[in-house]
Design a protein around this nucleic acid. Structure first.
Lengths: 203, 203
DNA sequence: ACCTAACCGTATTTTTGATTACGGTTTCTT
DNA sequence: AAGAAACCGTAATCAAAAATACGGTTAGGT
């Protein structure tokens, strides 16, 4: 199999895995199920990914990369960092609360070795956070975004207000999956909070 | 077995289960392991709890009840609601991030039926939240706590800032268990945020 | 065209842990 | 005290899914 065909196959397999994951959840995902969905053999799955955890690790990477691409795309859509941030709220929430993201978090919770969790954290820290941190600092200079907070607190404040404990409640099934309306309402609520922590707009 | 002895035995079994849970985590807990730790037979475990999920449900209830008792105790220790709240931060965090609480959250994440998650949510909503909501409203009247926010937002703001996304990161092993120092620092950080959202103290 | 390696699809093995069963003992009831 | 019920400890069963093996087929290289 040629290299690019191999890449395509790999992508197809991982997409199939995510389909199974979204449909049946973390519990219901078996290697055979993925193989069947991808019209591949489990021998191939094991040859390529080593074991189930390896497959999941690849899924985590793929998901994080998709989020990163999406973020970069959003950034180009808006003129100012503040506008980008305002539009980012619902986008970020819908990605963090997608079925696949929640299922991957459940997988990480079930992995006692912590490798999946580390991968999740690493992707977030290296690819997602820096972009948002940069946006926040830009917006602070632009429009006084979160200007009433010490700069070092802005990140933590932003994520805390936007996400809060919603994620853990979704992961634990304490909360049903969030509808688009709920996501929009949360993002709007968060934005109002952010405004009260920003310097008043100049007339 | 007499009724009170039965209660004591039940408590001993659940304590043993929590010991196993704290030591070996959710993955490492097996019914046989619990039986051995409790010097009970698994036949008894099944007779009393039905199945593994039933045992976990009892653990969730027991844990929530302990938190409730602790909260009530704290409330009596301080003269004003504001003082109680200030002292509550680290206490609440240390309970939410205890090994047992994190492990129970992992169990709920792994339970696709959602029963454990519902139990967790129900306990939080019925026993923990109301007490804190009441405290917050008291403190607002007392000292203008969170007075810059609409009253309906105070709860969500309080939990979002205090807990944020730390819990989901611990549950997924993205973050190591929190030390007392980190917990204290987080509570202090949150308190400063709360103060900036409160009305200025009267001289 | 030939050969080898990778692949598919399925069957088989292994592992793990929940659940059930059972002989022997203790505890409760009457 | 006698019988029944609950308990202990361990062994046996069951189920699910991970991991492996294998015969037949396809794709790539020479």
């Amino acid at each position: 199999m040629k290299t690019n065909a191999r890449e395509a196959r790999r992508e197809a397999i991982e997409i199939a895995a995510i389909e199974v994951l979204e449909e049946k959840g973390y519990e219901g995902l078996s290697m055979l199920g993925v193989a069947k969905q991808a019209k591949a053999s489990n021998e191939t799955l094991y040859r390529w990914y080593g074991d189930k955890k390896g497959l999941f690790k690849s899924l985590v990477l793929r998901n994080a990369d998709q989020i990163r691409v999406y973020l970069d795309d959003q950034q180009e859509r808006h003129a100012t960092a503040t506008q980008t941030l305002e539009n980012l709220g619902p986008v970020l929430l819908s990605m963090l609360f997608s079925n696949r993201a929640i299922a991957l978090n459940r997988a990480a919770a079930a992995d006692a070795s912590g490798e999946l969790g580390s991968a999740l954290a690493m992707m977030g820290r290296n690819f997602i956070s820096p972009r948002i941190t940069e946006l926040i600092h830009h917006a602070r200079k632009e429009t006084g975004f979160l200007a009433k907070l010490p700069p070092a607190s802005m990140d933590e404040f932003y994520f805390s207000i936007l996400i809060g404990d919603l994620q853990v409640r979704c992961v634990t099934h304490a909360l049903a999956p969030l509808s688009d309306e709920i996501i929009a309402a949360r993002a709007e609520w968060a934005w109002l909070i952010f405004l009260t922590m920003s310097s008043p707009p100049k007339p």
